[in-house]
Amino acid sequence: MNFTFASRTTQADDRSGVTHRALAWIAVCSAVFLASCAAPVATPRPAEPAPSSAVAPLPQAGPMPELVSEAGTPRDYRRDGATHLYGKNGGRIFKGQLPPLVHAVGVLAISIDSVGQVRNLYWMRAPSHAPDVVKEIERTVYAAAPFPAPACLASVTYTDTWLWDKSGNFQLDTLTEGQRNK
């Protein structure tokens, strides 16, 4: 017994041919793209100057910062910034726990550049009822510069809360000793 099969072209066969051609096209494009990524472009090197007997000194980018912070995040830097401010204002730090009601509370974001200089101050919550305190806090921050240079960060902006007593002394939330109940 011989069986013969009739050859019939269906719509499904036509689609599979289109699908195979599309896949082949995608494969070729992918191969070309990958080849272009793998082959480095040769660029001519500039001619090297003739060696001289004197070696030119390397240019200095500026003075190296005296204080350096190894903090990896703004939150870690916050402790270094607060410690620096306490060190520069030892006589103005409120000793012990603050009274239950303080004269002013302010939340200040401080931007420090790569060498420890203050770039910007941004009040997130200024004590608007005490403009003298706002001015004094800003003066205190600028006077404490340079801050520790953020070695692991190009620059840093950190936020701290200033707790200001009516005596003119303050604590920072990062290093606060807390508040009394009464």
Score class of each variant (00 low, 15 high):
Trp123Tyr: 00
Arg125Lys: 14
Ile110Gly: 00
Arg78Cys: 14
Asn120Pro: 00
Arg79Val: 14
His84Trp: 15
Ala130Tyr: 05
Arg79Ala: 13
Ala126Lys: 11
Ile93Asn: 01
Pro127Asn: 09
Tyr77Ile: 08
Arg119Tyr: 00
Asp80Tyr: 00
Arg119Asn: 09
Val118Arg: 02
Gly96Asn: 07
Ile110Trp: 04
Tyr86Leu: 10
Ala82His: 05
His129Phe: 04
Gly91Asp: 15
Asp113Val: 02
Arg79Asp: 11
Met124Gln: 13
Pro131Gly: 07
Pro131Leu: 01
Val102Asn: 05
Met124Trp: 09
Met124Ser: 12
Ile112Tyr: 02
Ser128Thr: 13
Pro131Val: 02
His129Cys: 01
Val102Leu: 13
Ala130Glu: 11
Leu108Ser: 03
Tyr86Glu: 10
Val118Asp: 05
Arg119Leu: 06
Arg79Thr: 13
Pro100Thr: 04
Trp123Gln: 01
Met124Ala: 13
His84Ala: 10
Gly90Gln: 14
Ala104Pro: 01
Leu98Pro: 01
Arg125Pro: 02
Asp113Met: 00
Val102Phe: 02
Thr83Phe: 10
Leu101His: 13
Gln97Gly: 06
Gly90Tyr: 06
Pro131Asn: 01
Ala82Trp: 04
His129Gly: 10
Arg92Cys: 04
Arg78Gly: 04
Arg125Glu: 14
Val118Pro: 04
Asn120Lys: 14
Arg125Asp: 13
Arg125Phe: 11
Val105Ile: 15
Asn89Gly: 03
Gly87Asp: 12
Leu98Val: 05
Trp123Ile: 06
Leu108Pro: 00
Ile110Leu: 12
Lys88Phe: 05
Tyr122Met: 13
Gly87Arg: 09
Arg78Leu: 06
His129Leu: 13
Ala82Tyr: 03
Val115Ser: 12
Lys88Trp: 00
Gly91Lys: 14
His103Ser: 15
Lys88Thr: 11
Arg79Ser: 10
Gly91Cys: 02
Ala104Asn: 03
His84Pro: 12
Tyr122Leu: 11
Gly90Asp: 12
His84Gly: 09
Val105His: 04
Ser111Asn: 11
Leu85Pro: 02
Arg78Pro: 00
Pro99Glu: 08
Tyr122Asp: 15
Ser114Arg: 14
Gly96Gln: 07
Lys95His: 10
Val115Met: 07
Pro131Lys: 03
Ile93Trp: 01
Gly91Pro: 07
Leu108Phe: 05
Gly91His: 11
Pro100Ala: 12
Tyr122Arg: 13
Arg79His: 10
Gly106Val: 01
Pro127Ala: 08
Leu101Phe: 12
Ala104His: 09
Ala109Thr: 14
Val105Ala: 10
Ala82Asn: 03
Val107Cys: 04
Val102Arg: 08
